[in-house]
Every structure is written in C-alpha cells, then in structure tokens.
Design a protein around this nucleic acid. Structure first.
Lengths: 114, 114
DNA sequence: GCATAATATTACCGTATAGTTATATAGTCA
DNA sequence: TGACTATATAACTATACGGTAATATTATGC
C-alpha cells in the first residue's frame, strides 16, 4: 500500500465495498465448505431468492465468487481463499473490539442501573 | 470466520465499509509514515477540510485511527497496523485483476478499433 | 475578553444501494 | 410443445452516504 494512484484506490475501495454487507458475508461464510447453489444459499442465509441472487451476481462481478451453471442450477464457489484471510484479519480485530465494547457496556449498565 | 452470528457479521461489514471509500483509503495511506494533523491530511488528500474531518471521525469511530489533540491541532494516526495487512492482501488481488482487466481492455480495443 | 487558527458539526442535495414484488429467462422432463 | 423448477432481472421504495457550504466549537496568544 505504498503508492496507490487514484484508480487503484477506487479499485480497492470497490473490493472492500463488496465485503461491506452482512448478507454477502453470510453467503461467503456459507461457501467456506464448498460450492452451493442459489437455493441452498437462499435457505442458509434466510434471504429471499431475488436478493441472494443479486448479491451473488455482485460478488461474481467483483471476482469474489465463481459461477458455474449445471442443469437448471447455478453453483457458486469462492474464487479466492484470500477472502477468508481478509475476514480472519478483521475478525481478529472485531473479536477484541466486541468484547471490549461488551465490557464497556456492562460497566455503563451497572453504573447507570439500566 | 467459522461461525459468525449476525451481530458479528454486522460488525465485520461495518469494518469493511470503513475501508470501502477511496478518500478514506487515501487518508490511511497518508498516515502510513506517521501521524498527521487534519490540515496536512486535507492538503495531501486534496479534499475539503470538512470532508476530511468527517471521514477522520468516521475512521476513529470504527477504531481504525487514533485521535490526539495537541493545541489547536488534532493529530491522527493508524490505530492498528493490520489495516495495512488488509490493504496489502486486497492490493495483491487488485494488482492481478487490474492488469488482467487492462489486457482484456487492450484486446477489446484493438479488435474493435476503438 | 477579543481576534485568529484549527477542527468539528449541521443542514442540505444528489446519488447509490439493499430489499421487495413481479416478471422474465433458461434448462429439464414428460 | 407445455408444465415445472431454478435463477436472473426490472421497477420501485426507502434509506444511507459522500460532498459542500455555512456555522459552531475549541484552543492559543495578545
């Protein structure tokens, strides 16, 4: 990340944006143990078919998942394991920050009797 | 990223969202060689003072940067080096994908005389 | 206190986007 | 071909968010 021109920044930002949505993360999470079709992902994520499909095509467009249709089904799979490295890195942070926040909230709750 | 509940996904998504903006990436990039105040970051990023300030407080709120006021100045610095690990990971992807895209574009341009 | 400088905040506008509903497009099988 | 299933897309709404201009806040030095 030394010298990134504006176009590269634009690109990186878009990549992060693809990951910046709970439903998409859920889908990626579900794909961790192998490819799944849209129905399965719809079921797992608890979203509607249309919405999941939209998120999937977005993820595919950004190169995060691969698309392969077999019969009437379309199977999606993770395009690149590095997605999970990213998430793990963030989750490390998140774990720390969430427990911290929980502590703070608890302290506050106790002191304010709420 | 094995079993993330919805709250955690929400959290991770927000973290990524903080990184999903070119101006914020530019600011983070500028902070790589040490703390800087708002004026400096405004200058470097080429944004307006108000806008940079807004992005900075957003980054601070999400724990990406630290804030320290000295005199009338406020100095910001990277809260956690892992931000750069994230960006490097993405940039690795981006580098590959951008050059690929450039190649494709070139091919297309040649074949369509455009 | 007053003027000045640095930063933050507010109000606003325009745009992007997540979600929904309804519809369209395949592909399969009878 | 026609019914059926799986997936994608379009149109729409509501909301979030980035940028800007104007104003507020905070700290310093006189």
């Amino acid at each position: 990340m030394s010298k990134l021109d504006d176009r590269a920044l634009e690109y990186v930002a878009k990549y992060f944006k693809a990951l910046a949505e709970p439903m998409r993360l859920k889908v990626l999470n579900a794909l961790q143990d192998g490819e799944k079709n849209v129905s399965q992902l719809t079921e797992i994520s608890g979203g509607t078919q249309a919405n999941v499909s939209k998120h999937l095509s977005m993820l595919a467009q950004h190169g995060l998942v691969k698309r392969e249709s077999r019969g009437t089904n379309v199977y999606y799979s993770i395009a690149d394991q590095s997605v999970y490295e990213l998430c793990d890195l963030v989750c490390g942070q998140i774990g720390i920050r969430m427990s911290l926040e929980a502590d703070i909230k608890k302290m506050f709750t106790v002191s304010s009797q709420q």
